[in-house]
């Protein structure tokens, strides 16, 4: 029992040590939902955005970065930690982190800046001392791109995780917009990453003309496995961001998360400087999307990428 008491006391001391290292430089608490290329890019872009606005880390602000490892319960505790330490601003990357930060910040009225949220209105994060950027996919641009590359295609297969809010709302938009471009959507929902390649088999057996990816974590995680199957079957797969095209998708009209992060950083800089209040700034959706193409992958599947698209492509993997 004595040992236990001494351990608890030691833990408390560590606790207070860690929390007394405060200084007058404002702290930005960054709560990221999990370790993931796109989300990491958001964070990198965000810090670039602050730098671009003339703020210097260590002089104008310091960063307390926390990562919840995709655990919803940890996001709550991270947010409470930020609130207790009176951070100057909370930056939330992805929806679960944002709602947790918002709930923890309301007492102290700490501004919350979010990014990588598809639908801030549905998440009710569109009012209050909160603002940020949405990473809604440019669905129409993607449909347009597919139409140009495959003029005869009729069905687009999409695999998505039924529990990922971003994917569910993207599917709804695909289904709403597809008829305008003469497509029908064949969507297959999965609940876990282990089901994704089976879903790919299902879509291949349904003879879809091509497949299109969302920013779905489960699907993107096993992209290589999907591509192996689709390449054998001769079905082109379209990505939703540059990283997927680099891995072997034919093309993508997608978001650049670094740019999204920069845009968010610029908004945050205004708030840190006191030039604006988060509650007065409406959330922003990225206006610029990039076209990315992968020429070898397209050639292997017998797809000609029209010259005007290649010319527009921001990045062309060779």
């Amino acid at each position: 029992m004595k040992k236990l008491v001494s351990f608890v006391l030691a833990a408390l001391m560590l606790f207070s040590l860690a929390s007394c290292s405060k200084s007058s430089i404002p702290v930005i608490g960054i709560s990221q939902y999990g370790e993931h290329e796109s989300l990491d890019n958001c964070r990198t872009g965000f810090l670039d955005g602050l730098k671009g606005a003339g703020l210097v880390e260590g002089k104008d602000f310091t960063v307390n970065y926390q990562n919840a490892g995709f655990d919803d319960n940890i996001t709550t505790q991270i947010a409470q930690n930020f609130a207790a330490n009176d951070v100057a601003m909370m930056v939330a990357i992805a929806t679960p982190s944002a709602t947790a930060c918002y709930a923890a910040a309301e007492d102290k009225n700490i501004p919350v800046i979010f990014t990588a949220i598809t639908d801030p209105v549905k998440a009710r994060l569109d009012s209050g001392n909160i603002t940020g950027t949405s990473d809604k996919l440019p669905v129409e641009a993607q449909l347009d791109l597919i139409r140009k590359l495959q003029p005869d295609a009729k069905t687009i297969g999409i695999i998505y995780t039924t529990s990922e809010p971003n994917s569910v709302s993207a599917i709804a938009e695909y289904e709403a917009k597809a008829p305008e471009y003469g497509f029908t959507i064949e969507a297959v929902g999965v609940t876990a990453q282990s089901e994704v390649t089976m879903a790919a088999d299902t879509l291949i057996s349904k003879n879809v003309d091509c497949m299109s990816n969302l920013t779905d974590n489960n699907v993107v995680g096993v992209l290589a496995g999907i591509l192996e199957k689709t390449n054998e079957a001769g079905i082109p797969v379209y990505g939703s961001e540059v990283e997927q095209v680099k891995k072997g998708c034919v093309a993508a009209a997608g978001i650049d998360y670094i740019e999204l992060g920069k845009q968010t950083g610029a908004m945050a800089a205004k708030i840190l400087r006191g030039e604006a209040v988060a509650s007065d700034i409406p959330y922003e959706t990225i206006s610029e999307y990039g076209i990315y193409t992968n020429t070898p992958a397209a050639e292997a599947l017998g797809i000609d990428i029209p010259a005007d698209i290649t010319a527009k492509a921001i990045e062309s993997a060779e």
């Binding site: 833990a11 560590l14 606790f15 860690a18 929390s19 990221q32 370790e35 307390n64 970065y65 926390q66 990562n67 490892g69 940890i74 505790q77 991270i78 409470q80 930690n81």
Partner: peptide, 16 residues
């Protein structure tokens, strides 16, 4: 409290 301590200590996120 254990989790909060790990967060407060500011340990690398991946090691939490």
């Amino acid at each position: 409290a254990c989790i909060q301590t790990a967060i407060t200590l500011g340990l690398p996120a991946n090691l939490m």
